[in-house]
Amino acid sequence: MAAGNHSTVTEFFLAGLTEKSERQLPLFLFFLGVYIITVVGNLGMITLIGLSSHLHIPLYYFLSSLSFIDLCYSTVITPKMLVNFVTEKNTISYPECMTQLYFFIFLIISECHMLAVMAYDGYVAVCNPLLYNVTMSCQVYSWLVVEVYMMGLIGATVHTGYMLRVVFCKAKIINHYFCDLFALMELSCSSTYINEVVLFCLSAFNIFAPILVILGSYVSIIASILLIHSTVSRSKAFSTCSSHISAVTIFYGSAAFTYLQPSSVSSMDQGKLSSVFYTIIVPMLNSLIYSLRNKDVKSALKKSLRKDYFALTKIYNSWRRSSKEGVQR
């Protein structure tokens, strides 16, 4: 190991989700299916929003960014975990581990703030609809997206920078299925007090600051919805918000359970189970929630499928006609 890393460890062993061999194949097949749905769902969402002109508004641009984040951070974690299910020696090199940690933190923090930005967008749409195009202009949208990724970049740089200072000279086995902060700190033979303080402070900020934005936005949204006299309009507004509320509840609940417990209280086995939700399950659920519960997305999907069906039918009929003409000749 290079002297700058202050570590005698060149690689780690990932313990994974379970040590029981009879569970490896079923878990591999389950998470492979989840990952395929995640990739297809999020790529499909990005493509659909890009191709559907009536979805070219900030709400769906934010949703496209959320799908991109979900796709990326699921890809940072899941493929390596799938490989570990079918190999005997579950190793990851020190540079690969730090790289995985960096991108995971960058994307997970970006997701926290993207969900808050989407809540703010909903607040502007419901509470100030006449000023929506001015308030959520292209410039404002672009700045909000840049700020989301900047928060992720800052958090990932700080966490990974302090982790690079940690001396690893104990056991090399990471009691997790990826390089997580808590699991890595357990292997340290140097003080991790600063790491724990930084982890708690940044986690609190990156969880509670977006939550305050989300709660403030939804208090105003609900108050505005209750003033709507039309039952149909009120139901439509609640339906639009319900998708985002579902995504926020699942994501923040599992993330808060993992990162806001003192290390003396939290259990790594509990941490692994809660991590499964926000690293693997949530990226799949977000695409399903927004595609199945959003009327605009469902309408765009139906139009796209109908258009593809007619195009394929036209190609097929053209091919049949040309085949018949060839036989007659």
Rank of each mutant, 00 (worst) to 15 (best):
M1K: 12
A2R: 13
G4F: 05
T8E: 14
F13P: 01
L14F: 06
T18H: 00
E19A: 08
K20M: 05
K20W: 01
P26F: 00
L29S: 01
F30E: 00
F30W: 07
F30P: 00
G33Q: 02
V34Y: 05
Y35E: 08
N42A: 05
N42G: 08
N42M: 08
G44A: 03
I49F: 01
H56V: 03
L59M: 05
Y60T: 10
L63E: 06
S67W: 02
F68L: 14
D70N: 15
D70T: 09
I77K: 11
N84S: 06
T87N: 09
K89V: 10
Y94M: 09
Y94L: 11
E96P: 00
M98N: 01
T99N: 10
T99A: 07
Y102F: 15
I105F: 06
I108S: 12
H113I: 07
M114Q: 12
V117E: 03
V117H: 01
M118C: 09
V124K: 05
V124M: 04
V126S: 04
C127W: 00
N128P: 02
N128F: 10
T135E: 11
M136K: 09
V140W: 06
V145N: 08
V148H: 05
V148K: 05
M150Y: 09
I154S: 04
I154T: 03
A156S: 15
T157F: 14
V158K: 02
V167E: 12
L181Q: 13
C189Q: 08
S190E: 00
S190H: 06
Y193S: 14
Y193L: 13
N195T: 04
V197F: 10
V197P: 05
L202E: 09
L202K: 07
F205T: 13
I211L: 15
L212W: 11
L215H: 03
V219G: 00
V219T: 08
S220T: 04
I221C: 14
I221N: 07
S224Y: 04
S224K: 15
S224A: 15
I225F: 00
S233A: 11
S235D: 08
K236H: 12
A237N: 10
A237F: 02
F238N: 04
S239C: 05
S243D: 04
S243T: 14
H244M: 09
I245P: 03
S246Q: 07
A247L: 04
Y252V: 07
A256M: 14
F257C: 10
Y259P: 00
V265F: 14
S267Y: 11
S267R: 11
M268G: 00
D269E: 14
D269I: 12
D269H: 11
Q270F: 15
G271V: 06
S274G: 02
F277G: 04
P283C: 06
S287R: 10
Y290S: 05
S299P: 00
S299C: 05
S299V: 05
S299Y: 03
L301P: 07
K302S: 11
R306S: 14
L312H: 08
T313L: 11
T313D: 13
K314Y: 03
Y316K: 13
S318Y: 07
K324C: 04
V327G: 03
R329T: 04
